[in-house]
């Protein structure tokens, strides 16, 4: 009986440790997915703002056709990169291209004072910056979750659980900070 207890007790402890570690991995993955859903929601909101912004700029600056087409094309590529089958790096590059296009689009307003003072344009710019602020916050939360998950996935003894169950590596979402580029320099 004592021998049996001496063998069974460590086994039970190991099993309990395994279950706790597994459950924590599952909770972390759920948290990563939830924060990623936040990013996707905010990215979608940004994609939705672009057509209105392009049309407003077109009303004042028809001669800037090249920039307008560049932004429209970048938006189409960013939308095409949203599905989960597309690698996260490709999605990040598509979003960077859209950020760059939007930066050029907003720079046009400097040459057109009437556009700059247009209430609709100012409101769209404000919405864009607020959306990009939220993207930045959601991206940092996502990356923090991924960093914590990856730390556990590689640490002893939780790496044993990750190896046995087959928890896969998650990649961080690294993009340029669009809000920093698009926020007006003077306060509203």
């Amino acid at each position: 009986m004592e021998y049996l207890l001496a063998i069974a007790l460590p086994l039970v402890l190991v099993l309990v440790g395994f279950v706790l570690s597994y459950n924590r991995f599952v909770a972390q993955l759920a948290s990563i997915d939830a924060t990623w859903a936040n990013i996707e929601g905010e990215l979608q909101r940004r994609h939705d703002l672009v057509p209105n912004l392009v049309e407003t700029v077109r009303g004042y600056a028809r001669h800037e056709q090249r920039v307008l087409e560049q932004v429209t094309e970048a938006r189409a590529q960013a939308i095409a990169a949203v599905p989960t089958t597309v690698p996260i790096e490709q999605q990040a590059r598509a979003e960077d291209a859209l950020t760059q296009g939007l930066t050029s689009l907003l720079a046009i307003s400097e040459s057109y004072p009437e556009l700059k003072s247009d209430a609709v344009f100012r409101d769209l710019q404000r919405q864009l910056v607020e959306t990009e602020d939220r993207i930045a916050a959601a991206r940092r939360l996502y990356n923090l979750e991924v960093a914590s998950y990856e730390r556990r996935r590689r640490s002893v003894p939780s790496n044993v659980v990750a190896g046995v169950v087959g928890f896969e590596a998650r990649r961080m979402f690294e993009i340029r900070d669009p809000a920093a580029e698009h926020s007006p320099h003077v306060p509203r």
Partner: peptide, 9 residues
């Protein structure tokens, strides 16, 4: 902080 996004911001 209860609002994690606000804390990160």
């Amino acid at each position: 902080g209860r609002d994690r996004a606000l804390v990160v911001t």
